[in-house]
């Protein structure tokens, strides 16, 4: 085993909204290049965990380490710069911008030219814009979206919008990618295609992925380990096949 710090380490994470403990005492460790699943019935607090990891909510207590670095309580933009990118359960694209521009917004922090250089059209503007165009097109090719790069993102079909959101997240050059229900609203064919894409991302971009999903076929198909949340509490944790056959988990999903 390597001595390096785990990619993501969550210790005793908790958040309280008024009297409601939405997430309580969550512990989780994700190693590099792992594909980790976070599952649980509706309202279990999965998206809340994502929102804490990305800085949208500030945890009431507990700590989050990314690659050994404490990132608890930082702003969403700072956390992205540290290396966490995400997609959203309800797709949040920049709807009045082209497909290419959506990805170029993701590349924003990797290019250093200033607004003044942009207005005066100094050489660095042209050089870096060209690099951005090339990088963005390359990313779109991975998701087979390069043919539609001038389309408005809101005009894309649903499945492609989900892919574009992943492409945009990858453009920020993250170490850890959080996918919030990537297969929601997809048919079995699209889901199978998505599974291939996710595996491809891990290999090609040397990525670590944490995903929330309801589609058990997808979870058992690709996730190595899972954590099951129920009413904000950890119900089970471990290797996917074992956890999914745990009677406690089955009860939580299907009832007594």
């Amino acid at each position: 085993m390597s001595e390096a710090a785990p990619m993501l380490e969550i210790k005793n994470l908790a958040i309280q909204f008024g009297g409601l403990k939405a997430v309580d005492n969550l512990n989780l460790t994700i190693k590099k290049n792992q594909l980790y699943g976070l599952i649980g019935p509706n309202g279990a607090g999965k998206t809340t965990v994502f929102n804490m990891l990305t800085g949208v909510y500030k945890p009431t207590s507990g700590t989050i380490y990314l690659n050994g670095e404490n990132i608890t309580g930082k702003s969403p933009a700072q956390i992205n710069k540290h290396g966490i990118a995400r997609t959203f359960q309800n797709i949040r694209l920049f709807k009045d911008m082209s497909v290419l521009d959506n990805v170029k917004v993701g590349l924003h922090n990797q290019k250093k030219y200033t607004g003044i250089e942009g207005v005066l059209r100094l050489p660095r503007y042209f050089k870096e814009e060209k690099e951005m165009d090339e990088k963005a097109t390359e990313l779109l090719k991975v998701f087979e979206l390069d043919g539609e790069k001038d389309t408005l993102s809101s005009n894309l079909p649903y499945g492609k919008q989900r892919k574009l959101e992943i492409a945009r997240a990858l453009a920020t050059n993250p170490k850890l990618l959080l996918l919030d229900e990537p297969a929601a609203g997809m048919n079995p064919n699209e889901t199978a295609d998505l599974m291939r894409t996710i595996r491809f991302i891990i290999e090609k971009f040397d990525m670590t992925i944490l995903l929330i999903e309801h589609d058990m076929k997808l979870v058992s198909g690709i996730c190595e380990e899972v954590t099951v949340l129920n009413f904000g509490q950890e119900l089970a944790q471990g290797v996917t096949t074992e956890v999914l056959n745990d009677p406690k988990v089955i009860t939580a999903y299907l009832g007594e």
Binding site: T54, N80, R92, F94
Partner: peptide
């Protein structure tokens, strides 16, 4: 303008 939360999430 298009999506405040998504803009933050990509580090803007």
């Amino acid at each position: 303008r298009d999506n405040y939360i998504a803009a933050q999430s990509v580090g803007i």
